[in-house]
């Protein structure tokens, strides 16, 4: 007889669960980058394409969640954080899978192979950015607990510590990036200038994944610290 009792309509599903899901997809997309570089170093272009397709698939799933979060957050919803903050957070998070997809697209499209001396290091660089994203995943996974604990100080401290962890990783990534760039610079005279330009480009893209990760973690902290 009753369609939806009044109480069911008052409560809305927590948007923080979707935010966390989105971040999981983001980290999955970045996780694929190791495979991507391994395939490109072996010049296995069929495999590169496969990885590109996987990343592209994950990216569109993340997009779908982003869309859901946006439509599930109409005005008139009462949230414990600012609605604009939450929308911006998802927007920021969404750059992570996008950048992973850009990297894969560029490597596949231009068949970029890093000079052999750099191959090991670029894989390490990618691993650092993966670590960063995994740390951010830990930060966003705290959101649900934060709401449950009513933003208790202890819980906020947990988030602070995790954000610091992301900061340390970002610093490591920076150092790695500087090192890599100087090595590319050394190789410039003996290589095709265009290839070199694209090496710089890829290094920049991977570095930016870590940068965005850090921005996401800061955004979460700003959202919950008051």
């Amino acid at each position: 007889m009753p369609k939806q009792p009044i109480f069911s309509k008052l409560f809305r599903e927590s948007p923080f669960v979707a935010v966390q899901q989105h971040m999981e997809f983001a980290s999955e997309a970045v996780g694929q980058l190791s495979n991507l570089f391994q395939a490109s170093h072996a010049a296995d272009w069929a495999r590169v394409e496969e990885v590109y397709n996987t990343i592209s698939e994950i990216e569109s799933q993340a997009d779908e969640i982003k869309r859901e979060v946006r439509i599930s957050l109409p005005r008139g919803l009462f949230l414990p954080v600012y609605r604009a903050d939450l929308l911006e957070l998802v927007q920021l998070q969404d750059q992570i899978p996008n950048k992973a997809k850009d990297t894969a697209g560029l490597i596949l499209g231009r068949k970029i192979v890093f000079p052999e001396v750099l191959q090991e290091q670029i894989v390490e660089f990618v691993q650092v950015s993966q670590e960063g994203v995994l740390s951010v995943l830990k930060v966003t996974s705290q959101l649900d607990d934060l709401i449950r604990s009513g933003f208790s100080n202890r819980e906020v401290h947990v988030v602070e510590d995790l954000v610091n962890e992301v900061g340390v990783i970002e610093h490591r990534a920076d150092e790695k990036q500087i090192l890599l760039r100087s090595q590319v610079h050394v190789l410039e005279p003996s290589n095709n200038p265009l290839d070199m330009m694209f090496c710089y480009k890829i290094i920049e893209l991977i570095a930016s994944i870590t940068d965005v990760s850090q921005q996401v973690s800061h955004r979460v902290l700003c959202m919950v610290a008051r």
Binding site: R12, E13, I147
Partner: peptide
């Protein structure tokens, strides 16, 4: 009773104790 409960739930929401409430209700 129902309206009073809605009031109570909104009170908790104001104290940031709930994930999302539909104020249109």
């Amino acid at each position: 009773t129902t309206h009073t409960l809605v009031g109570g739930v909104l009170g908790v929401g104001l104290a940031h104790g709930l994930a999302a409430l539909n104020l249109r209700m």
